[in-house]
Write a protein that binds this DNA or RNA. Structure first.
Lengths: 212, 212
DNA sequence: TCTTTATAGATATTTTGATATCCATATTTT
DNA sequence: AAAATATGGATATCAAAATATCTATAAAGA
């Protein structure tokens, strides 16, 4: 066994639960609470106390024995782990129904994300603003990305257009793509793709509904 | 050991992958393909062949040895498993940015879902139509649910309103709630709640981005 | 002061899901 | 006709995640 510690890996499931904890901790902080126990959090989240305890321990949340986790310190630790302590500039491609809805979602500021530009090909959208975000033509992708030094793309284009746009993004040096199109994108290693597929959740719902 | 077989459980992860398979199989069917192997599907999905094989076997997809899975038969089996072979009437509460986007998403017809009504409290929305769906006042929830015998609710209201609406829905006999509000709803057992939280995906993306 | 108790901390166990391996067989190739 | 091969089918192994158990301790209460 090596004398070097392998950096403790944090599980995907734990990571997915962090935003929920963060929301609750923000609230507690707003109310002036300084400590909160895993059992108290368990009621709020409908998770088991042990799950919460392990999750928070995994990210190194500070605590006080027999009293709970420290609210302010835990917020800081989670934000730092996710990189949400300062805003990442992002942009959105595809101002359709979903794209427009995301542009209107002001919660991203609490999630380390600031959408500073949008792209589309429709003439009536290009040049306009959606919720304060300027819409450029997709042909200008590379130049705007470079000029503003953008690193995160939100992809809300139709499935058929997704891979083509992706190739452009990769060529422009994008490092992360949040993909809402129902396709599996091919990207070189080094580029992170996070796929969202709403139909998975619906499938879960329907499967549960059937098994009753 | 009992002589009765416990019904083989299908894992949540398998269920979440089914819609993706279904999309691909629809496509293959449209092109007249009758058989497809797990290795071919693996390329398309970026999953391992063994994962696909096990998923399809789990739902009882028909196959031909050394040739692959039968396209038409597999579609039928997945649709039946999810209950997507006939449309479930659903309605949406909260016609904000996201709610309106969901009303405009016509892909639900392929997912066993037909949104037949929407609800909101804003006077300028009540009485109007969004993408062909009539918007009623939230006060009318119970009566419309009963009259149209609706069973599935899509909840896209602000977090603060979610539990209150949920109580109304439960009282009106709703059996399934697809919850897009960032809160954990309390419901009696027997009511299925599927929570969607977009920030989990963002957290995954950011965590990956940080660890490079 | 002493006892009780709720908690984080640590470790162990169990469950779930992913992956690997081997086999039988139908198809393809030689 | 014979050999090689790609596949589903079955089983085994491995990894990840959830859950349980035990411990030390600080706080609260008697």
């Amino acid at each position: 066994m090596s004398i070097f510690h392998r950096k403790k890996e944090i599980s995907v499931q734990t990571i997915r639960r962090l935003p929920q904890y963060l929301r609750i901790f923000y609230n507690l902080h707003a109310y002036g609470r300084e400590l909160v126990s895993s059992t108290a959090l368990a009621e709020e989240t409908q998770l088991l106390p042990i799950v919460i305890k392990k999750d928070l321990q995994a990210v190194g949340a500070p605590s006080k024995l027999r009293a709970g986790f420290k609210v302010a310190g835990t917020i800081a630790v989670i934000e730092k782990f996710l990189g949400w302590n300062n805003l990442n500039k992002a942009f959105l491609v595809g101002v359709g129904h979903l794209g427009a809805a995301l542009l209107g979602f002001d919660g991203f500021k609490n999630h380390g994300l600031e959408i500073v530009a949008a792209f589309d090909t429709h003439p009536e959208k290009v040049g306009s603003e959606f919720h304060g975000v300027q819409v450029y033509h997709t042909a200008q992708l590379a130049s705007v990305i470079e000029k503003q030094n953008l690193k995160i793309a939100i992809l809300t284009v139709p499935a058929s257009a997704a891979q083509g746009i992706t190739d452009t993004l990769v060529a422009a040096g994008i490092k992360a793509i949040w993909n809402f199109a129902p396709v599996n994108l091919s990207v070189p290693s080094g580029v992170v793709v996070q796929k969202e597929d709403i139909s998975s959740g619906l499938a879960e719902l329907c499967a549960q509904l059937k098994s009753r």
